[in-house]
Amino acid sequence: MKLSPYLAFAKKSFLSRSAYRFDHFMGILNTLLRIFIFWGIYLALYNGKSEVDGVTMTMVTTNFILSMGLSTVFCVNDFYLPSRIQNGSIANEMLLPVSIHGRMLADNLGNALFQLVFHFIPAVVISVLVIGIHAPASVAMFALFLLSAIFGYGVLWTISFALQMLAFWLINVWSIMTIKNVFINVLSGSMIPLWFMPDWMKGVLMFTPFSSIYFTPVQIYLGQLSVPEILKGFGIQLIWILVFVFLGKVLWKQGQKKLVVQGG
């Protein structure tokens, strides 16, 4: 798989986003609003206390600022493949000498890079200045946080990748994507930090793909994980990526088979 066309697609995706300036400013405003609303909710819940169950207000704000900031970058187009299956152009895509998965990824990465530069950074900088967050535990932990965040994006992208393949059989996957997004919002720890969950639930959630999207990177950032725990966190992220890539590839093969055998 030669990289050049995919880099060109990522660049095109990045540049096409910059054409919509109003949308860009609204996006930053939306992220800031969400962060400030959650800040208000947690301020009310903490009711002036410095910590609840050993979780400080700063830890909570750091969690939701970073998680919500990252969620602006981690925007995956869940309907890239389903829309092509619905209108039949998937068959034309199959005839092109580039991988459709590569195009999907390039398109999403170009968009993610735009979001990182023009949404994440401004929104996080403003939030840090107004609300304030924990500094990273160390430079090394910050570097590991960035690596873990990349893996987190990988988990999120591959979940969407595998679920999009279901469109070969279901055609309309809107409801499945909605359920997936609810699971991610609730169980990834971005809205409600997993620290507040019962121990048994936290234990289970730490092995699910959801917690490894946002919560693992945030925990590394805060220095809450030892080196073996960090390695375990990376391991879980990589295993989920491999599982979903495998699932997606199997479903893709079956979907293609359905097209060439049944003709649609």
């Binding site: 034309n92 005839l95 092109l96 000498p97």
Partner: peptide, 14 residues
């Protein structure tokens, strides 16, 4: 995909 480099296809339903 390999053939796609040197093949052009236009079908009415695609």
């Amino acid at each position: 995909s390999e053939l796609g480099v040197s093949m052009g296809v236009m079908l009415n339903d695609i």
